[in-house]
Design a protein around this nucleic acid. Structure first.
Lengths: 208, 208
DNA sequence: CTAGAATGCGAGCGTTTACTCACATTGCCA
DNA sequence: TGGCAATGTGAGTAAACGCTCGCATTCTAG
């Protein structure tokens, strides 16, 4: 155990056949992770669940942590692409509506494969993956700070960077904790309303 | 591996000698965890670092996860006892000051063994430990909700429970993320100020 | 002082599991 | 069609590591 060194794929899938294999393996990884947890995930088990030989798995993933890493990367990309695709549209809206839209967006992002999301955040040791998370985080931060700065005249705020830090932390935590501790809250409009209230009052926006 | 079942100590230390052993082992666990990470932590290594035989370790900790679990419990207790001890005093203060005090308290709590805190939150799979965390969380939530309810007349808020959820999530996340991503921010009064602003505006309290 | 309890010891057992490798099969291109 | 590259296979290897157990040492109570 813990022999892992390299985390990049050892071989790129070139033909359609092998691309399918890679996909199947990643899907199986997600299934096994949800069903057995991180400790219960073994490469042999994943191969079996994928209906692929263990050898094939190791053609494309040099070790277990690369396997899980690839899955995390995919999941994070699924979540952020959802947000990014809508964000430009949202940025055009009046501020009060933009706030609500962003909150709803984040909630929807957390509803993408929630089971997997839970296992990934609860159980998977974040060694080495911290870099990727920080990156996403920095992206979020920059976008929010930019939005705040560009609309500064309609807001009652100080340093956009500091405000962005507080806001991003708060909103991320609210959706995240709701997803983990009380998933039903994600459907509860009262949570969205309350979060909107918090953000609007903080930024000094009239209720919309 | 993954043979763990019981998580309670197999034997209570009765004499001073064995109580010292247990302490030494827990300290060594913390050191090893910080130095090698969760994956690099082995029971043999801990025993060696503690200057204790592996057999002795297993006298008091039935398995690896109980060992780490005990450490988490201790750390969480250290953090919460700090908060609880001051909270009654804080509850007496005028609201504007109470807010600042609570924020400072949380920051101080996150400064208890920050290295260990980091490893614990970043790396240790939370399987089974979720219960304890939820418990702490529920306690926090109840206290904040209670405080809000009792001072409701001076605040511009709706359902105290919902507000408490938003507040606790936000404040926890801000200190936690500052601790993880930018420890120097914890010393930066601007962060405290900004967080105060957020909370005060949200609750409708005049700046203090 | 002594007996029995508590504690300490650590070599090594047994299992788990990541990963290899020699070989088979399939697809691609000339 | 032949030949080479890409892909697939899975039994087997080696090492890591959690944990046991039989025995030694230290404490405590009577």
């Amino acid at each position: 155990m813990q022999r892992q060194v390299r985390t990049t794929p050892r071989k790129r899938p070139r033909q359609a056949r092998s691309r399918a294999t890679v996909d199947t393996v990643l899907e199986a990884t997600a299934r096994v992770l949800v069903k057995r947890g991180f400790d219960g995930l073994t490469t042999n088990l994943v191969a079996e669940a994928a209906g692929v030989s263990i050898g094939s798995l190791y053609q494309y993933f040099p070790n277990k942590s690369a396997l899980v890493g690839a899955l995390i990367e995919k999941h994070v990309e699924d979540m952020t692409s959802l947000v990014l695709s809508e964000l430009t549209r949202v940025a055009q809206l009046p501020m009060a509506e933009a706030v609500r839209s962003v909150i709803e967006l984040m909630i929807r992002a957390h509803a993408v494969e929630p089971e997997l999301h839970r296992v990934l955040t609860e159980q998977v040791p974040r060694v080495g993956r911290m870099a990727k998370l920080r990156e996403i985080d920095a992206l979020n931060h920059r976008m929010v700070a930019g939005l705040l700065a560009s609309r500064r005249h309609e807001l009652a705020i100080g340093d956009p960077d500091m405000v962005a830090f507080v806001l991003v932390s708060a909103m991320e935590a609210i959706t995240h904790r709701a997803a983990l501790f009380a998933p039903e809250l994600l459907r509860d409009p009262r949570l969205i309303d309350e979060t909107c209230t918090m953000v609007r009052r903080y930024l000094g926006i009239a209720d919309g």
